[in-house]
Simulated assay, not measured.
Amino acid sequence: MLKAIIVDDESKSRESLQILLHDFVEGVEVRSLCQDVAEAIQAIERDKPDIVFLDIQLQRETGFDLLTKLKDITFEVIFTTAYSEYAIKAFRFSAIDYLLKPIDIEELKKAVGKVEKRMNGNIASRLTELVQNLKVGTSSSENYKLALPTLEGLIFIKTNDILYCEASSNYTQIYTADGKKYLVSKTLKDYEDLLSEHNFFRIHNSYLINLNSIKKYVKGEGGYVILNNDISLDVSKRKKEAFLNKIGVRNA
């Protein structure tokens, strides 16, 4: 049985989530309902939860304030939020679970299921990178870090250190500037959604490239790019025009 606490400054939200967990999610016992950071700290010390469902805005403080006041984070966190799209992307970059309000039952089940599979993972490092990504902002890709779920665990790398991503069935191979590659359990479409705002472009069904890593473009029916590591990747005929517009080239 997973022990949980709910931290939300709205009583209706706390009670609603408690009812959803009781009625629809097996194996979760809600030990405490908290309305602010002070109550949450007491509940965490007393109940030693496995999961904390944490709202972002808590009266005059935030869920991040709560986390920074704790000496050790020994529990998983699932954020409950009505936050902006940008904050949601930061959660996804950092491999942090979140639920959008109003909470969907199936999404709640999935989030708890992922926690069960991931128990004892390094939540502290994920939260650290989440806070950093939120501070950096979407305009500073140089310092933005992406969590890669590999067989060895989560690996954090700067987006600007990624040369390109290659589709591998339902997995993705990610190649970095230091010559390493990582096989991750997400599709190339997932990374296209995450990285397009960070100067990445999908030049082919199989390739998503960092436009900052292009050394040369060679003309052809679709043509191909040569990246900084001297590898050549085809540009599909269908993607050629959009790609050339993206890099500011005409009639190539």
Rank of each mutant, 00 (worst) to 15 (best):
A4P: 09
D8N: 11
E10N: 13
K12F: 13
K12V: 12
R14P: 09
L17T: 05
L21T: 12
G27K: 02
V28P: 06
V30N: 02
S32Y: 12
Q35K: 09
V37M: 04
E39H: 02
A40Q: 08
I44L: 07
E45T: 04
E45K: 15
K48R: 09
I51L: 10
L54P: 07
I56G: 00
Q57L: 12
Q57R: 13
Q57T: 14
L58S: 05
R60M: 12
K69M: 02
K69N: 06
E76I: 10
I78P: 03
T80M: 12
E85V: 06
I88M: 12
I88V: 13
K89I: 00
R92V: 10
A95I: 01
Y98C: 07
L99V: 00
L99M: 05
E107Q: 14
K110Y: 03
K110D: 08
A111T: 10
G113Q: 07
G113K: 13
K114W: 00
E116K: 15
A124E: 14
A124C: 08
L127K: 06
E129I: 11
L130M: 12
V131N: 08
Q132I: 09
Q132H: 10
L134N: 03
K135D: 12
K135Q: 15
T138Y: 07
E142F: 08
N143C: 00
L146P: 02
L148V: 02
I157G: 04
I157E: 09
T159C: 14
L163K: 00
L163T: 01
C165V: 02
A167Y: 01
Y171G: 04
Y171N: 07
G179C: 07
L183W: 01
V184Y: 02
T187S: 15
L188A: 05
L188E: 05
K189P: 01
K189T: 05
Y191G: 05
D193Q: 13
E197Q: 12
F200Y: 00
R202N: 12
I209P: 10
N212F: 06
N212M: 01
I214T: 04
V218G: 04
E221C: 02
E221D: 12
V225A: 03
V225N: 09
I226Y: 01
I226P: 06
L227Y: 00
N228S: 15
S232F: 03
K237Y: 14
K237A: 14
R238T: 15
A242D: 15
F243N: 05
I247W: 14
G248N: 10
G248R: 13
V249E: 14
